[in-house]
């Protein structure tokens, strides 16, 4: 009974329950075959969603209307930048990662600059920025066929005891993000702004600076994600980030973060990320066609959101 109440109080647990149910359904279908491999694959793919999901979570927590729609374009450009800087040589891996990070952070900073200078809703600011970034990427990354350095490609695929090392590092990163959110001035300020921006401002929170940092952080995470994706999939691509627009928003909401802002949850991002990846694996295992898979993915996301429900507006 007590555990049931705990479940109801912690909606983010549902995302892990959902992931488990989907995994069990798939394992039951295959008769236990490939159960472990599925977890390994899910972990390595979920990493990419979790990294951008955490960035998107901080942005969404800033309050209604705050969302970063430029992530796909950002990921695409950063993946090209990383591959070009690395140039296929192992000695340039760190420089390439830093370049991708800087590229993403610059995009995040420009996003906030547009929001601040033009006083436009973040949706439109990040949308118009993404138009421009997309073109830069198409023009910059045209015909780019640089393979990632072997060391980097191996690193992104490196596993220890069936657990991807990248996933372990990402777990450490998410623990850090959770600490930053709940125990550091930055995170508390983000939460305060999301709950009531005016009250936060009156209480002395540097609203502008915190929002700037949040957008820059989200952009930087998108950049690093692009570099890692290019390593994992052995090459940069303009469309490499396309699916992360929906995925980054979906994991945040399914993971129990409030879309109204001011309430965030880091573990839920992991649960939701695993849930989404395992869901795709399940549908692929069942052998449904691409059309059915898209329809079911969409319906399940809408269904989960409906079941989780939105909170009543505070006012």
């Amino acid at each position: 009974m007590a555990s049931l109440r705990m479940m109801l109080e912690k909606p983010w647990l549902w995302s892990f329950v959902g992931a488990l149910v989907v995994w069990l359904a798939t394992v039951a279908f295959t008769g236990g075959y490939g159960a472990g491999g599925m977890v390994t694959a899910a972990l390595s793919l979920a990493v990419f969603t979790v990294i951008v999901g955490v960035g998107q979570m901080f942005v969404i927590t800033l309050g209604p209307g705050n969302v970063d729609l430029s992530l796909p374009a950002n990921i695409g450009l950063a993946s090209a930048v990383a591959m070009k800087v690395m140039g296929g040589s192992d000695s340039m891996i760190v420089v390439g990662l830093l370049a991708a990070l800087a590229c993403g952070a610059a995009i995040g900073a420009i996003n906030y600059l547009l929001i601040w200078a033009l006083r436009i809703p973040p949706i439109i600011a990040t949308l118009s920025a993404s138009f421009v970034i997309q073109s830069v990427d198409i023009s910059y990354g045209r015909g780019l066929q640089i393979k990632p350095p072997p060391g980097f490609a191996d690193f992104t695929n490196w596993q220890v005891l069936g657990i991807p090392v990248l996933a372990m590092l990402t777990v450490l990163f998410t623990i850090g993000a959770a600490l930053a959110l709940q125990r550091m001035i930055f995170g508390r300020s983000v939460l305060a702004i999301g709950q009531n921006i005016r009250a936060a401002w009156l209480a002395g929170v540097h609203v502008g600076r915190i929002r700037f940092l949040t957008y820059t952080l989200c952009g930087a995470l998108g950049g690093i994600d692009g570099a890692l994706l290019a390593g994992y999939f052995r090459g940069a691509n303009v469309d490499i980030g396309n699916e992360y627009l929906l995925a980054s928003i979906a994991v945040v909401v399914i993971g129990g973060t409030s879309v109204a802002g001011g309430k965030a949850n880091v573990p839920g991002v992991w649960g939701a990320g695993l849930f989404l990846v395992l869901l795709l694996t399940m549908l692929n295992t069942f052998g449904v066609s691409a059309g059915v898979r898209l329809v079911l993915t969409g319906l399940i996301i809408v269904g989960v959101i409906t079941a989780a429900g939105g909170e009543k507006a505070v006012r």
């Binding site: 969302v67 627009l245 929906l246 928003i249 979906a250 909401v253 879309v259 898209l294 329809v295 993915t297 969409g298 319906l299 996301i301 809408v302 959101i305 409906t306 429900g309 939105g310 909170e311 009543k312 507006a313």
Partner: peptide, 15 residues
């Protein structure tokens, strides 16, 4: 259900 339309319609775009 007081849902965020961005998420619902993103899901519907897949449908």
């Amino acid at each position: 259900r007081n849902l965020p339309s961005i998420v619902v319609t993103l899901g519907m775009s897949f449908v």
